[in-house]
Design a binder for these strands. Structure first.
Lengths: 335, 335
DNA sequence: ACCATGTGGTTACACGTGTAATTCCGGGCT
DNA sequence: AGCCCGGAATTACACGTGTAACCACATGGT
């Protein structure tokens, strides 16, 4: 272990300086286009040439150590927990942030509590954090980040968190909207799918709570139903559907909805006659179902808008409010 | 700009030392459990207490600057380009790497050429890089990484790259397998779906090439067909399907396959009678289709296996060969 | 008396970078 | 000549950490 097999001698700015016959400071000035300082065109060319020749790559760690902050933007989320909708959005956000010189980095990691999570994120000393699950944040966690030099925390969530920039997104409202719709369509015994895949509970729980809130204000009932994303699990659930007596279900997701509809059909249950199904995210998938799937659409703020706000937050400590997310029900034939 | 709104004075190990009444070195020894050095239980407790009290978080940049290497493992991939299969795999890999003390980080970014990409990755000075698109790598790119202190490069790909640890995965073979199957089922005019979404071309192109190779060795023909992931694009494609005369198609993906089958049905074409369809990844989705979808399954090496190899690579410079990926055709009713 | 040994701690340096402060130097003005 | 000025580069330091080398001091053996 630690044989140090081959140390190809990382090239530093000092090497560039030596080759160009100038001081390290001059190299830094040239490579960063520092306006405050003048450097003759001749040496500038020599430096650039040397850098190219040695294939010099700056050391991000050293740079952000010196600068006190990095150009990293951390998005704490696991790859698979993010659905199609979020994935595409994060992709675009990455491009937008790149325009401002930031580097978006996705990093999951399960932690027992918000402060512990914040500490782990803080180690990277990112310039900003975009928390898609803002309700998993606390003031104390944000404070930990702040003390680590994080200049901007954008939180998608339902409640204000001290020190964080809120983008309204109430998962409770999502569940409520679906339940209200089902009730309006005459359904009274509702189910809410709780995906068993890890990482999804964070969104599933408040959605369930929202649906339950609607039930409490009407004559309907809401029952959570567990479902793993597999044909077997879905078939098993559909097999004992009749005895559950559920006549409407909010399936967390368009993907889970599609899976469930498939299994229900297999069990001889008709959608929407026997069971009304509502999905979420309004994916392309929902239009492909038989019958086409009613879905809750979430139109997220444009990545550009969020990127700009984030930049202003990092740069000036303040930013204009970002438009929140209002869930909208898109009715199709499954309900 | 740069108002420095509030600098909550990041707490460093020096602060911890001051509070505990010891030197910074002692703090470091305690917090890292350095075995080479002894420290009395009394002061150890004082240090730990002080650290907790100040909520000390180490500075990853400073640490890796000193150490010469970080504990980052970079997976260069965009979030959305990774399908369900890869997402789940990366998720598991993250857990496995965590056991070894690494931090997996996902980061996309489009670059004109491999060396440019490598330079961008190298700035982070990761301990290792796991390139899912290993064929997009060159020896020169790996060298850039090596010179930046990257100790292990694992490349999923079809050809050996100097300095990288190859995990066999021949996308050409994937396309070939699908085409061979379609030919064996009596199809002669084949189509291969080329998704228009950005980032997917890297895998789509070699798959097409593989299918074309099969055609060249038989009486069949292969035509690329462009498809965006939307109902409109699929309907448009299906609308002019008859005139194309294609009687079999490899759809890149189970998701694109499902979309295409939906559109074909809408255009009055029967699967598999008129058109045989083959997908890829063998997702849950494929079992939900009508008819169930034939798919190319890729069983990836276990994340644990890759994580172990990666650790040995970083630690000792060498690692045993990781089992490659052999695509397997799973036949169902769509072909 | 003196040295080996072990314990618990500190001092000093290096990692690679950015930048404020400084130096050097030639030239134009009084 | 003396002086200031501005261009062009350098020197010196700080960022936060890990660790090798060193030190003080007690203990016990010869």
């Amino acid at each position: 272990m630690a044989k140090e097999p081959k140390a190809p001698a990382a090239v530093t700015s000092a090497d560039v300086a030596r080759l160009a016959g100038v001081s390290r400071a001059t190299v830094s000035f040239v490579l960063n286009n520092t306006q405050a300082h003048r450097v003759s065109d001749a040496t500038r060319a020599r430096v650039l040439d040397a850098a190219r020749q040695l294939d010099y790559v700056p050391h991000a760690a050293a740079r952000s150590l010196r600068a006190g902050r990095s150009n990293l933007v951390l998005v704490p989320a696991s790859v698979s927990a993010a659905g199609r909708l979020v994935s595409a959005w994060v992709d675009d956000l990455e491009s937008e942030l790149e325009r401002h010189g930031y580097v978006l980095v996705l990093h999951a990691g399960r932690f027992p509590d918000p402060v512990r999570a914040a500490r782990a994120w803080a180690e990277l000393r990112p310039a900003a954090v975009v928390a898609l699950d803002g309700d998993g944040l606390t003031g104390q966690a944000v404070e930990v980040l702040g003390r680590a030099g994080v200049r901007g925390v954008i939180a998608f969530g339902s409640r204000e968190v001290a020190g964080a920039h809120l983008v309204g997104l109430d998962q409770t409202r999502v569940g409520a909207l679906a339940a209200e719709h089902l009730v309006a369509r005459g359904r009274r015994t509702l189910g809410v799918v709780m995906p068993q895949e890890r990482g999804l509970a964070t969104f599933a729980r408040p959605r369930l709570a929202g649906a339950q809130g609607v039930a409490a204000r009407s004559t309907a009932t809401v029952t959570p139903v567990e479902l793993s994303y597999s044909l077997e699990s879905a078939a098993e659930l559909a097999g004992r559907w009749r005895e559950s007596g559920l006549d409407g279900v909010f399936a967390y997701n368009d993907e889970y909805a599609a899976l469930l509809m498939h299994a229900l059909r297999g069990a001889g249950l008709a959608v929407p006659e026997d069971v009304a199904v509502v999905g979420c995210d309004d994916l392309v998938l929902s239009g492909m179902q038989q019958p086409p799937l009613t879905s809750v659409r979430l139109d997220l703020p444009t990545p550009a808008e969020v990127a700009d706000a984030l930049h202003e937050l990092v740069d000036g400590g303040t930013a204009p409010q970002v438009r929140g997310v209002t869930p909208v029900l898109v009715q199709r034939q499954s309900s």
